[in-house]
Write a protein that binds this DNA or RNA. Structure first.
Lengths: 315, 315
DNA sequence: CTGTTAGCGCGTTCAC
DNA sequence: GTGAACGCGCTAACAG
């Protein structure tokens, strides 16, 4: 591997000083149009690109951000990451990935390591157990997704709106006895918040609530589907698509039941297996875009720490 | 943010010279036990960690590797990445992620960018269209997964073995008329290779082959499932779990058919939806581990470019 | 407008 | 064994 050429070489090759090359590189003013063009031509010709490490050492930033997902095989998070990556690359930032596995301790450790590495920013997929304290050092260079924390930038999903949207649709379709298959309250957003939104709707519309919060897995959805059924029940809202898959399997095995399912989260898999389900999309892709944009704003322009809520859409 | 302390500070604080600290840092010999301990104590006390950028500038390596997945939402690839990440972190390497979206052009572009960035190594999830030529510059610091290329290190799945294992099992179960629902030959491994393995088995065992290769999606599996059926057919092998999900749905809607499904790839989703399916696991997690180990070996110890094949297991 | 100079934090000779 | 000096590629301050 031949030694890469440096800013000095470019300077020599284009007959100028190093600092002029540096100025051109950073689009600084104070360089005549002619020299700028000449230098740029030489750089292009030799395919020159400055050493990241050297710049990082002078400035502060090594232009690296971290994305901490809860689980690499979480479909929803992947959809968000998918839109994040190009956004980061477009700004010249390298995204490194980590997996928190829903462990607050692991996150604390990872954040520590990232701080020592002098990383520029972090996108963290939140979950129950991450406390504002552990995020404190990152306040100005962190965006948290799926959770909000006071004083931090965040991109959240509209749990409340999603539940309302689904219930309203079911209501319009004539359903008056609607059960709710949910996640335990220990999960703030997908658990408690969605349940509360359901209860609020019931109260407003004189619907008798019927709730079960068995867990997060397909199996739980399958086994506890009947928990939310009364003889009058004609529809059930599932708090997550995973639960909905469980419920869907139960219904498939009981074709006589004719219960309308609704679900927060609508994946291609669900569209294929259960096209009849009414689904609400939380806008993962959009969340990724917004999170990346927000973080870049904070890093490069001290943008204010906004709390963003992604609008829901019905499928 | 207060200015981080440097090797110089540590030197001053422990009453030695910079180079001694440097030696301790790199575990070099030629430092008395006493001073080493003293310096290490100081480093620990102040939580010192050397600047990556500065080291990168001196040596070659910035200790960054890239992982190029085809799609972020590919479950199989995620399982491999999941085991890769800790392996990289354990060696002090930061893994940055990219998505190729099955586009050879994109990969070429990404590899170019990575080369300019002076990245240490790449794990590439292969697919049809990536040519050895574009990988050439990376020969010594690349591991390709799911494809093999002559002269490159690779970690491959045992397509042949998986098909054989499944067919053999079905055969043992008494099935003699077994169809094959596959992926088009344009995909070398999951398409052609698996089909050929099927045909070879049929030939050896006097089974009449019955093949369809409609595509890769669930919908294709669903719509073309009947293509591989004859009145005698009692079992069907699906080349991928995605196809199997499609076929499974078809069977669920036709409970009278009683056809035994078998599939390459066995996910929790499938275990839940279709526990009756005979599945072969390709060993994604193991592949991730091996790939990371192989790459680290190549980078740090010029390990030879091995072509690794992960053994299949039956579920 | 442009070239020169001085470091950034670290690794690497060299002398001591 | 250990420290002082030098330079990596780049940016920032200062001269011209």
């Amino acid at each position: 591997m031949q030694t890469r050429l440096t800013i000095k070489d470019i300077a020599r090759l284009s007959g100028v000083g190093k600092s002029t090359v540096s100025r051109v590189l950073n689009n600084e003013s104070g360089v005549s149009e002619r020299t700028r063009e000449r230098v740029e031509a030489v750089m292009a010709q030799y395919g020159f690109s400055p050493s990241r490490s050297a710049r990082a050492m002078r400035g502060q930033s090594d232009k690296v951000v971290a994305i901490i997902v809860t689980r690499l095989d979480s479909l929803s998070e992947n959809l968000a990451v998918q839109t994040m990556l190009p956004a980061f690359y477009a700004e010249g930032y390298d995204p490194i990935m980590m997996e928190s596995q829903f462990s607050p301790e692991l996150v604390a450790e990872q954040l520590g390591m990232l701080r020592r590495r002098n990383i520029d920013g972090v996108v963290l997929f939140g979950f129950t157990g991450v406390t504002p304290e552990m995020l404190q050092p990152w306040q100005s260079s962190l965006v948290i997704i799926a959770r909000d924390a006071p004083g931090f930038a965040s991109v959240c999903y509209d749990d409340d709106g999603a539940v309302q949207l689904l219930l309203q649709r079911l209501y319009e379709l004539g359903h008056r006895h609607i059960g709710f298959l949910g996640v335990p309250d220990s999960d703030t957003t997908s658990g408690m918040r969605r349940r509360e939104a359901y209860m609020a709707f019931c109260q407003r519309n004189g619907v008798t609530p019927r709730i079960a919060q068995p867990g997060v897995t397909m199996v739980k959805g399958y086994e506890h589907f009947t928990d939310v059924l009364t003889p009058e029940t004609t529809a059930v809202v599932c708090a997550t698509d995973t639960l909905a898959l469980g419920a869907g399997k139960y219904l498939q095995e009981h074709p006589e039941m004719h219960i309308q399912l609704a679900s927060i989260g609508y994946t291609p898999l669900m569209a294929f297996l259960h096209p009849e389900i009414v689904g609400a999309s939380l806008g993962y892709a959009e969340a990724g875009r917004r999170a990346a944009a927000q973080l870049m704003g904070q890093i490069t322009r001290q943008a204010e720490l906004k709390q963003i809520v992604i609008p829901v859409t019905l499928n």
